[in-house]
Design a protein around this nucleic acid. Structure first.
Lengths: 199, 199
DNA sequence: ACCTGAACACCGTTCAAGT
DNA sequence: ACCTGAACACCGTTCAAGT
């Protein structure tokens, strides 16, 4: 039978196993040997598909960005005629992704991946995601919802940074308990964004 | 002679060695054994002062927060009658700290420290730092520089999140090269903040 | 109280060998 | 082409022993 030696797609199986370990044990518990074991292969099998651990982490991060991109796309596409709604729904999707995939989110943005530039598909999807943000910001500027005092890319980094910062601080336990009792992360992030809006 | 067995303060020597390794090799290169070697003691000596690696990381992070707090204090104290200046100078100091101590900054905020709540002095200094931010925000609200549409602590998380997010994205290489050619991180962060100001 | 050295389990990576 | 098993250097942590 054509059982392709193993289940055929060990590469993706390893990525998936990595995501699962990440979710269960956090970045500290992520080892290549555990990933291999979880995928049911020997500890050296991953080296047929990834040159080293960093490459697997890059693949996991890339997978995360793809999911994030897809989520953002889905959140904003229904509102192509309402930029403000796109912005608000995009933020919701971003925060939701971070909350539902905390450890993937952390590994994507926490510097565990050391030479991101060495992984073209990671660079590709992350810059595509940024492009999506810029488009929404651009539309908001055109509609007079955000000030046109700066080019869209600068404004995009400011807005994205705002959301990203609040989410990151919250995930790292840097937002006070008393504040989190009164508001969800969604609300805190949205509040910050509201400060930047014109209408 | 009272050479106290070693140089007397191995605990701080280990923290210092950790900071140096962090700066030279990044978080990936930080091992207890290397820290011990750099401090000139055997690999098991650190266990006389730290129960485990996480505790050393907590101590390094605490040290980082202390530096950050001191820097913020020094930046704002000369302008106690000018809240806006305090805010702008505080932001500058924050960004400067992140740029000059990139890897310490990352370890403080990147989730490498897993159970922050277990380290009282870490919690203490980080919440004191937040309190400092809240005070400045409060003063800005009173002076009509920031809107009083929300309690100071919520506003503080928004402002801090804004700056922190932009800095984090920049340090992780998520800010496009073309943008970084035109503006410093300082400028990008300040621009985002300016969006939130009333005057 | 503070430090050493041997020991153990675990990890990343390499390589010769097997299908 | 894809995978295994032995091997090596490195790591966190423990513990009995030394001063």
């Amino acid at each position: 039978m054509p059982k392709k030696y193993h289940h055929g797609d060990l590469k993706n199986a390893l990525i998936q196993a990595g995501v699962e370990i990440l979710a269960k044990e956090g970045a500290g518990g992520l080892s290549l040997r555990k990933v291999a074991q979880r995928a049911g292969v020997s500890h050296s099998a991953p080296y047929a598909h990834f040159p080293d651990k960093q490459s697997l982490i890059a693949a996991i991060s890339t997978e995360g960005f793809t999911q994030l991109y897809t989520g953002l796309e889905a959140a904003i596409s229904p509102y192509s005629k309402n930029p403000k709604k796109q912005l608000l729904e995009g933020v919701k999707a971003y925060v939701r992704f971070a909350e539902e995939n905390t450890d993937t989110f952390k590994i994507m943005f926490s510097g565990v991946l050391e030479k991101e530039k060495d992984y073209p598909s990671f660079v590709e999807i992350s810059s595509q995601t940024f492009k999506l943000v810029v488009e929404v910001i651009q539309a908001c500027q055109n509609a007079g919802i955000l000030p046109a005092t700066a080019p869209a890319d600068l404004m995009a980094v400011s807005v994205w940074g705002q959301i990203h910062g609040v989410v990151s601080l919250a995930l790292e336990g840097q937002v006070s308990h008393t504040l989190l009792n009164k508001h969800t992360i969604q609300e805190i992030a949205s509040f910050g964004l509201a400060q930047m809006l014109l209408t």
